[in-house]
Simulated assay, not measured.
Amino acid sequence: MASSRLDPDHVRIQRGAEPFLLDGGEVGCVCTHGFTASPEEMRWLATYLHDRGLTVYVPRLAGHGTQPAIMRRQHWLNWYEDELDAIALLRARCRQVFAVGLSMGGLLSLRAGEDGLVDGVIALAAPVFIEQRAARFARLIDFVRPYTRKGDWPGALDEAVRAAQRALGLDDYGRLDYGIRPTASVVQLSALMRDVRRRLSQLTAPLLLVYSRADDTAPYASLDYIVRHVRSADVVQHTLERSGHVLTQDVERDTVYRLVWEFLQPRLDG
């Protein structure tokens, strides 16, 4: 487990948690990972889209894939700046750019859509609110408990990901997710959710929303909330039944990849 103590002498990106670019055609996708995770959880989706001719960039959000003590020092706007950098990078080489995000990455994708920066938004299990009571009091809790351990970490999903990585001939470093949550970062996640909710009526771009009823992190009610508040005329919704929160790596991941591609394909120029 990563240490909660800041070690400035050993600031390194974990092996496998690096951002990456898959150079392809003139349509680009920014695929953004979730809270406490890393670009690794978007790798299989990114490869799937690249195999179909798209250029894909997967950014690493500030403080992720390094040390939790670095993550707790980030403001949500730091994460949004990472999203903006990624979009700008693809705008320089692609005629169309779509934002594809999982969990907090989905929130950042929605925010980019609200700002009119992308040609479409795909939000996978993006929570626009959190039902856990502790999250609502995170600012106070941070004074006495700067980190909380994840009870399910690394969990069965990490073992399944490692097995899949081995089957693909890859290094089996697993999900590359922190085993602790910086409480200050939960505060920033909540602030990001509030900002996204406040701006939803500004979102007019084509929108794909994919959520799972079995997700115990992103409330399924987020789906309906987003649909009711955006002004997009082109909204596609899909519900999964068996996946947990990490839709891009869980049991229905192949279905998720297909849904993303089926949404993108008819909306590509030319």
Rank of each mutant, 00 (worst) to 15 (best):
S3F: 07
H10Q: 05
E18P: 04
P19F: 04
D23Q: 09
E26N: 11
V27F: 11
G28M: 04
G28E: 01
V30G: 04
V30S: 00
V30I: 07
G34P: 00
G34K: 10
G34N: 06
T36D: 05
E40A: 15
R43D: 11
Y48R: 03
P59Q: 05
A62D: 12
H64S: 14
I70A: 05
R72D: 10
Q74P: 15
L77Q: 13
W79Y: 09
W79N: 04
Y80I: 11
Y80E: 12
E81L: 15
D85G: 00
R93I: 12
R95E: 12
V97E: 01
G106L: 00
S109H: 13
A112G: 08
G116S: 05
G120Y: 09
A123Y: 01
V128I: 09
F129H: 06
I130H: 10
Q132M: 00
A134S: 07
R136F: 13
R136I: 03
F137R: 12
A138M: 01
R139V: 06
F143G: 01
K150Q: 03
W153D: 07
P154M: 12
L157N: 03
D158L: 09
D158R: 14
D158C: 12
A160R: 15
A163K: 08
Q165V: 09
G169C: 09
D171N: 03
Y173D: 12
Y173K: 12
G174F: 13
R175L: 15
D177K: 14
D177Y: 04
D177H: 15
Y178K: 05
G179P: 03
I180P: 00
R181H: 07
T183R: 07
A184V: 02
A184H: 02
V187K: 06
Q188D: 05
Q188M: 10
L189A: 10
A191V: 14
L192D: 07
M193L: 10
R198S: 15
L203G: 07
P206V: 03
A214P: 00
D215Y: 06
Y220E: 06
S222Q: 02
S222A: 11
S222W: 10
I226R: 12
R231K: 15
R231E: 07
D234E: 05
V235A: 13
V236G: 00
R242Y: 13
S243W: 07
H245L: 03
L247C: 08
D250K: 08
E252Q: 05
R253S: 04
D254M: 02
T255H: 02
V256L: 06
Y257I: 04
V260W: 02
W261G: 01
W261P: 00
R267W: 04
R267S: 04
G270T: 01
